[in-house]
Design a protein around this nucleic acid. Structure first.
Lengths: 338, 338
DNA sequence: TCCTGGCACTCACACGGGCAGAGTGCCAGG
DNA sequence: CCTGGCACTCTGCCCGTGTGAGTGCCAGGA
């Protein structure tokens, strides 16, 4: 186990490196922090930390920089979550309060998060499967063409067009609409499949085909949209990445455009509490030099979706975590109110 | 007026520079093109072209590169639109045919365009004001809470929640729904305001308030959504920009995130035919070193929205224009079919 | 009048040596 | 176990030089 002071040295290295973006040496450390020992002692500690794999030198006779493992230790043991200042909190609230609908909430959130953290922000739309049904609507656009509209308690709306083989009477439609609603309103989307599976049986022979079609579209929607939507913002912040641009930034931009990858990334994050994935902990190749800070948010106790930021492994973890957590809380509040 | 050969020289310079990304000199020109004259002659022509402002030298004794004005002349007079190869056409069709709904069409289009041109693609959702109404639906979520759903002929769907002061009876609702539809179905969204303005008068005193509220939300939606949605893709292609990265790429990324800016840009493009804005012709500061190629697309003869690409002024204009035009056509077809 | 070859000139850029500074590892002494 | 000292190793920077691409200009020729 590492001594208390060595941990302190690691913390100092991480802080300085995050601030200056330059390898930090033993002398600079003693000058900028009250460690109470001489540079030579620090050098020994650094050598030990390097043996353990927490820090590394880019080349001989340069200072040290933290490794992914070093950041991991820092995040787990050495750093807290830095609460936002109260002006910041007020700014968040003011900014989010102006939102008029779900799209607006999500859009504002992503901009806010990007600005606050000066990194790339990612916000997932509230998941269908975890939301509850507020209303199901079925309407006839034409005799054999229906439209299905799903409305969630989080304000999300999904619609699908349905082409039926046979015309579907107005009364049957009203009937189906009523029965659907009575069964699923207030229930979670995840439970919908069981709740409706026996529905066709209660209809007349002629209508069963259409009812089945409608239900299959409904279930399909649930499945498809589990492949969720998300919004990204602040990609311009990537330009603050480092000096060795094109190589670093390109794979990240590519990864960000593949929403599937990001969704998987967010999906891997814990539902509650904050998840930080550092560098190579991210499975995706383009993101091995970035860290992802993600957290779930929701209108109630449970998370309905996640949001987070993607930034260089060399990021201000306490600050970023603080911002992410705070934003998630406020978004949750906004959703609960609407 | 410039002689035939000088125009030819300008064309050669543009082509070479686009290909190599390096200033092109007189000797290289005679070697790579059959101009039939010696380098010395070319030098004279180049000096003339420089005097006219079509080309410039980055520094004394380097080759020449085209200026914005040079590209302008090239695009207007010297370059055609390069048609795509038939495998490319097939690929486009196959790729777009798989789309299941409007979101999917737009998403696929943006990816396709980005891949085809190796630049940043921008696709605007079909505009509401230029589309026609397929259906208007009103449904009661609660006694005093309604939902308004607008469906366009291009498959776009918009919805809004409406809180009414007073409960609104089921019969009144059905009445309003029927009247709304009979008035506006098949008409252009732009005409909707006049078509519905006298509607409240035909309702009973008690309901007029609610009817007015519904209508005002309807009109609001039309206005709000004129501030259209758009989708961007291929930002990773920005990394191919140049060597002097951070400075070039940052303002572009920032501009791309401001959808308002992009919409204005697209809005300035002509409705029919293709619009090419080169370098400083773009009002926005961040885009002065980029060119925008935009074109309208639509299900019929008229454009319902625009799409295009953003790339370095040093781009392959004929190829890019060909790709943009072809994609727009296919998207139009797809929309017309659905 | 226009094209051509020749010539002198100008830069950007790449190469290489030398120098300074930061940082390290190790060791002997407190 | 900490400390100061010392020798060593790099990287980065500056600078001078040389090379090569490219130019402008001019005088001669079709």
């Amino acid at each position: 186990m590492l001594s208390e002071r060595r941990l302190e040295v690691l913390r100092a290295i991480v802080q300085d490196y995050v601030g200056t973006e330059e390898p930090v040496g033993s002398k600079a450390l003693t000058e900028r922090h009250q460690l109470g020992v001489s540079p030579a002692t620090i050098r020994n500690d650094m050598a030990a930390l390097e043996d353990e794999g927490f820090i590394a030198q880019p080349h001989t006779s340069a200072g040290r920089i933290p490794t992914d493992k070093g950041y991991r230790l820092f995040v787990d043991k050495l750093a807290g979550v830095k609460p936002l200042s109260s002006p910041e909190r007020r700014a968040i609230q003011n900014f989010l309060d102006g939102a008029v609908d779900l799209d607006d909430v999500v859009g504002r959130t992503v901009r806010l998060l990007a600005q606050l953290t000066r990194q790339v922000a990612v916000v997932q739309y509230p998941s269908l499967t975890r939301s509850t049904v507020r209303h199901v609507e079925l309407l006839a656009l034409a005799p054999a063409r229906l439209m299905l509209v799903l409305i969630t308690d989080t304000g999300r709306v999904e619609q699908r067009l349905i082409d039926c083989q046979a015309p579907f009477g107005e009364t049957s439609l009203a009937d189906l609409r009523a029965r659907l609603n009575s069964r699923v309103v207030g229930r979670r989307f995840a439970d919908v499949p069981q709740l409706v599976q026996d529905l066709p049986e209660s209809f007349e022979q002629d209508d069963r085909g259409t009812v089945s079609t409608v239900l299959s579209v409904l279930l399909e929607t649930l499945v498809e949209e589990t492949e969720e939507r998300l919004v990204i913002g602040g990609t311009a912040n990537l330009t603050r990445f480092g000096h060795d641009f094109p190589l670093t930034i390109r794979p990240v931009l590519e990864a960000l455009e593949e929403h599937v990858v990001l969704l998987k990334l967010l999906g891997e994050a814990k539902d509650s509490g904050m998840t930080v994935r550092i560098g190579h902990e991210n499975a995706h190749e383009g993101l091995t030099s970035t860290s992802v800070v993600a957290v779930g948010y929701g209108s109630g106790d449970e998370a309905v979706a996640k949001l987070g930021v993607v930034g260089p492994t060399r990021m201000d973890y306490p600050g970023t975590m603080g911002a992410v957590r705070a934003v998630a809380r406020y978004v949750g509040q906004i959703l609960a109110e609407s």
